[in-house]
């Protein structure tokens, strides 16, 4: 039988032993569906094929550390909660758990009630990751503002980039919100993938709706923006119906209710390069971005504009 989608799935990476058997029993008794792996590569394969709701990783398994680091460094999979199953000795030898990217830990031998509570607690945390955007799982406004503040204060040679979609309202009206959400998710994936590939430590946030924000080192602005635009223009046509793609425009109602022609979806990026313009206070950033956005929005298709030095 196929598993019902609502059933919670837990992936366990462990060495076979008695202590583990007990934990497994406790979870299965409570209706969790447990997948067992003793090989980290096989566990990876499972996660990429069918992501579980939660992971339990035993420190007795070879390669457990690499497994955990890999999952927690992946922009898509890092939100999956991971509980470390460890012994007191291992714990003391580790010195500090804060260097590890697990979400919680459990000690052998496990107390029945504790196992359940930890698992349930993690589940509720995972579903209420407060600042993250539910659609894209990217950090939201609070984190974005804090990051801008940091960047401005540290006087890093960075470029602050505001990205949004053009004609998104018309797109949503024509195809519905579900497809609008797909466009947002695609945009989020494209920005994340491009920035991470070009500069591993880039920050990407989701302001809300079709507004995104990212930070990259100044000298990578051109490469990054051009690659984002190229990938966006490559993938977005998969969301446009054939007839509209052939015509090259979509028909939709404007704000007054009149049927109008709108260009296909494109994007605009306003870039505030801190190397060019001196910014002393974070509040100046959004004002400057607003002006720049107006200018870049006037151009046809997908574009980016960088602030100029005042002469």
């Amino acid at each position: 039988m196929k598993q019902v989608a609502t059933e919670k799935r837990i992936l366990c990476l462990h060495e076979d032993d008695f202590a583990y058997d007990q934990i497994r029993q406790i979870l299965s008794d409570k209706g969790y569906f447990v997948y067992d792996y003793s090989d980290a590569n096989a566990a990876f394969a499972h996660i990429y094929n069918e992501p579980p709701d939660l992971m339990v990783v035993s420190t007795k398994t070879p390669g457990w550390k690499e497994f955990m680091t890999r999952i927690k460094n992946d922009s898509v999979y890092k939100h999956l909660p991971l509980i470390l199953l460890t012994s007191e000795e291992t714990l003391t030898s580790l010195l500090s758990l804060s260097d590890l990217s697990c979400d919680d830990f459990l000690l052998y031998p496990a107390h029945k009630k504790e196992v359940l509570l930890r698992v349930q607690l993690r589940e509720s945390y995972a579903s209420s990751n407060l600042d993250a955007n539910p659609l894209t799982r990217l950090p939201g406004n609070y984190t974005i503002m804090a990051t801008i503040q940091n960047t401005v204060q540290q006087k890093n040679k960075s470029a602050l980039c505001y990205l949004d979609l053009d004609n998104f309202k018309a797109f949503n009206d024509r195809y519905g919100f579900a497809r609008g959400d797909e466009a947002i998710r695609m945009t989020a994936r494209i920005i994340t993938n491009v920035t991470r590939k070009i500069h591993a430590d880039s920050f990407v946030g989701h302001v809300g709706g079709d507004d995104f924000f990212f930070i990259i080192p100044s000298h990578l602005t051109k490469e990054c923006c051009e690659q984002i635009i190229q990938n966006f223009d490559l993938v977005i046509p998969t969301l446009i119906n054939d007839e509209d793609r052939v015509r090259g425009y979509i028909e939709s109602k404007d704000r007054k209710g009149n049927v109008q022609r709108f260009p296909l979806l494109s994007l605009s990026i306003a870039v505030i390069d801190l190397n060019i313009t001196r910014i002393d206070h974070p509040a100046e950033v959004s004002a400057k971005a607003g002006e720049l956005k107006k200018a870049v929005k006037k151009l046809n298709g997908s574009n980016y504009l960088v602030n100029r030095r005042r002469s």
Binding site: D74, S75, V76, R189, T192, N193, R196, K197, V235
Partner: peptide
């Protein structure tokens, strides 16, 4: 590949 990215 554009959507999955290098890590995946």
């Amino acid at each position: 590949l554009v959507l999955l990215g290098y890590d995946a």
